[in-house]
């Protein structure tokens, strides 16, 4: 564990807590894409299948349970909780996110580190996570203005993988044989997809306006 990875995990944890806070306290998911949340639930479900077979540390298992629990409960809230579901912008959240799943699965079957069931699904989860934010970014374009909590959620979600990139650079220079091109390229693509959002998000800080 290094400071970059810990900062990355904490940023990721903060992003799900901000979203849960917004949904649970003000019972609103305005501006939040259910489709991105569904993709993230699939990402965690396919990435943490090894939670029962390979124990890394208490921290690792605990965080996996937190991410699994939060992503599925957010989907449940947005789909089935009356008050929250009413604030869901179904008409605008129309990105065909299922079209992302199959290509990621095919790619994982073609490009992976080991051809085993767990490893292919793990690789699939990396590719899917790289593009999971797309429905949310499209929804963002359509809803123009978003509230601060949603803006912070997206900022933290984008920032965590950026911190992971620093972690991979650190581990590359400090650990022999630490080379994971698939993870690195997927993580880079994921972070680059936020570039546009980061630009407007920082403009907001400079201009002191809402995120447009």
């Amino acid at each position: 564990m290094n400071i970059f990875r810990l900062a990355g995990d904490m940023t990721h944890l903060a992003s799900v807590l901000v979203l849960l806070l917004k949904i649970h306290t003000i019972k609103s998911c305005a501006g939040v894409s259910l489709r991105t949340q569904e993709l993230y639930a699939i990402v965690f479900a396919t990435r943490y299948l090894d939670i029962f077979t390979s124990f890394v540390s208490v921290y690792n298992t605990f965080m996996k349970l937190v991410f699994l629990g939060s992503s599925f409960s957010i989907v449940w809230y947005m789909r089935y909780h009356k008050a929250v579901h009413r604030t869901y912008d179904r008409e605008q959240d129309t990105f065909r996110h299922w079209f992302l799943v199959l290509p990621c699965l095919v790619l994982a079957l073609l490009i992976h580190e080991k051809f085993t069931f767990l490893e292919v699904l793990w690789t699939f989860s990396l590719y899917l996570e790289a593009v999971a934010i797309l429905p949310q970014l499209v929804l963002l374009q359509r809803t123009r203005n978003i509230d601060n909590l949603t803006g912070q959620y997206i900022f933290l979600l984008g920032g965590y993988r950026g911190l992971y990139i620093l972690n991979w650079i650190y581990r590359y220079f400090t650990e022999p044989h630490f080379v994971h091109w698939i993870t690195w390229i997927a993580g880079l693509v994921q972070t680059l997809l936020y570039a546009d959002f980061f630009y407007y998000y920082f403009l907001r800080f400079i201009g002191g306006r809402g995120v447009e």
Binding site: R5, D9, H12, D50, T53, S54, V56, N60, M63, K64, F67, W122, Y164, N167, E175, F178, T183
Partner: peptide, 10 residues
Amino acid sequence: AKEEEGHDEL
């Protein structure tokens, strides 16, 4: 060994 056998990152 741990790294090889599985993934130690989230």
